[in-house]
Nucleic acid binder design. Structure first.
Length: 434
RNA sequence: UCCGCGGUAGCUCAAUGGCAGAGCAUGCGGCUGUUAACCGCAGGGUUGUAGGUUCGAGCCCUACCCGCGGAGCCA
């Protein structure tokens, strides 16, 4: 095949009238006698390649006939603007070369069940919808990094293998660590981030985190990504202000750069366009009042369940920040409100449309004696936390932070049914393949 | 862990206790504008596993296996 410039489908608009070469895979094929329509995908987009029997050799026409779904090939042709074609452009094929004929492809153009698709996740990621989701995910990740990098935060990577359960609550993945006994996969880098904040001022970590909880719902994974900023000299109000600016930035970045993807996902853009500061801020106590007004039986002091969060979330058209939870349902390191010791200076951010908690954060307990009390109350082994207590012994200051779940955020922005579509290879309790 | 639902062709699903079916995918044939194209023909089955009831079980009963999504827990 002659060497014309190889271009990507997304750039075809700059080559109308020119002869170009495209390389990719056959997404679908239709034919009508002496015409063949080959839908080519190359990762950057999709384009219909038209093979007309009168324009090409007999051999080429037969080769086009033999292409099966997902066969790889390169094709040379003339780019033309074509409103009848999806995407608005088309390639009039002049020459074509088969690279590899695909075996019978399991994921056909009709509907499939979720189980089958997950079994074939390594192939499923080629599907239009999955490509769109994964591009949005990549854009969200970039927005997260850009946000913190441009606001004076320093990336501070916590360890993934840890000697103790960070918050002492969740079930963790356990391993034998040489002669040192048991070690665990991290459930949060937060305690380490606090040490980073006292060294660098404002830090963040961004990486995978692990929960061995036997959660079987569409909102849970055993391995998921979390971004955790931690800031010295921030109180709870500063923390909430940062969280809302952060979420607004992520959503608006995706809206600006992922129009094609959101359209493919049939996302209602008006639901995202309203995601602007300020977000509603209500106290836990006010949240309980909303529940009671809605007829939900709820006792002050209990934690909000998923259904409760959905009900409260439906009251607002943007994420709602619920703050000052009963300290008893929150982690030991959260600072109690000096004005009401029954509640902790914690905040959860609930996404709209029933997507639930996407952020959990708090102002941290900075007083050594109070923290020691909390550790005793929670029956945690103090020896494991000596290094953490040192942060209060050597120049303690007020500080705050939060964690945002990447997959839940992507799931919400994309309007997904299942969290597992928001990560390339989801890990769930009864599945660790492919 | 608890509660609920499910397992039939490669896939998605049908089938009053009475011949195992359709669409898609695959193969062959047809069509010069298809948009999950369409039309015709063909191949494709240990109905999750093991028992039981029955003249007869995909269907009813028991146990087990696997999965799904909800609760709890959390992001």
């Amino acid at each position: 095949m002659s060497q014309k410039p190889t271009v990507y489908i997304k750039d075809l608009k700059n080559h109308v009238g020119e002869e170009v070469t495209l390389k990719g895979w056959l997404y679908n094929k239709r034919s009508s006698g002496k015409l063949k329509f080959l839908i080519l995908r190359d990762g950057s987009g999709y384009v219909q390649c038209v093979v007309f029997k009168g324009n090409v050799t007999e051999e080429l026409f037969e080769a086009a006939e033999k292409l099966t779904q997902e066969s790889s090939f390169e094709v040379r042709g003339k780019v033309k603007s074509e409103p009848r074609s999806v995407g608005g452009y088309e390639l009039d094929v002049i020459d074509m070369k088969t690279i590899s004929i695909a075996h019978e492809y399991p994921i056909t153009p009709k509907e499939h069940g979720i189980e089958f698709l997950i079994d074939n996740r390594h192939l499923w990621v080629r599907s239009k919808r999955q490509v769109a989701i994964l591009k949005v995910r990549a854009r969200v990740v970039k927005a997260i990094r850009d946000f913190f990098d441009s606001r004076g935060f320093v990336l501070f990577d916590p360890p993934i293998i840890t000697p103790n359960a960070c918050e002492g609550t969740s079930t963790l993945f356990e391993m034998e660590y040489f002669d040192l006994g048991k070690a665990y996969l991290t459930q949060s880098g937060q305690l380490y981030e606090e040490s980073g904040a006292f060294a660098l001022g404002k830090v963040y970590s961004f990486g995978p985190t692990f929960r061995a909880e036997k959660s079987k719902t569409r909102r849970h994974l055993t391995e998921f990504w979390m971004v955790e900023p931690e800031m010295a000299f921030y109180d709870l109000d500063d923390d909430m202000a940062l969280a809302e600016e952060f979420i607004e930035y992520i959503v608006q970045s995706v809206l600006t750069d992922c129009q094609v993807e959101l359209q493919e996902l049939e996302r209602d853009l008006t639901k995202l366009e309203t995601i602007k500061r300020p977000f509603p801020r209500i106290s836990y106590t006010e949240a309980v009042e909303i529940l009671k007004r809605k007829g939900v039986e709820f006792e002050w002091g209990n934690d909000l369940g998923g259904a409760d969060e959905t009900i409260i979330g439906e009251e607002f058209d943007r994420p709602v920040m619920i703050h000052r939870y009963p300290s008893e349902v929150k982690a030991f390191y959260m600072k109690r409100d000096p004005e009401n010791p029954k509640v902790a200076l914690a905040v959860d951010v609930i996404a709209p449309e029933g997507y639930g908690e996407i952020i959990g954060g708090s102002q941290r307990e900075d007083n050594l004696d109070f923290l020691l009390e909390r550790i005793k109350e929670h029956n945690l082994p103090q020896s494991f936390f000596e290094w953490y207590l040192d942060l209060r012994r050597f120049g303690s200051v007020p500080h705050s932070g939060f964690g945002l779940g990447l997959e839940r955020t992507v799931s919400w922005i994309c309007g997904l049914e299942h969290l597992r579509e928001a990560i390339p290879f989801p890990r769930m309790i009864y599945r660790n393949t492919p």
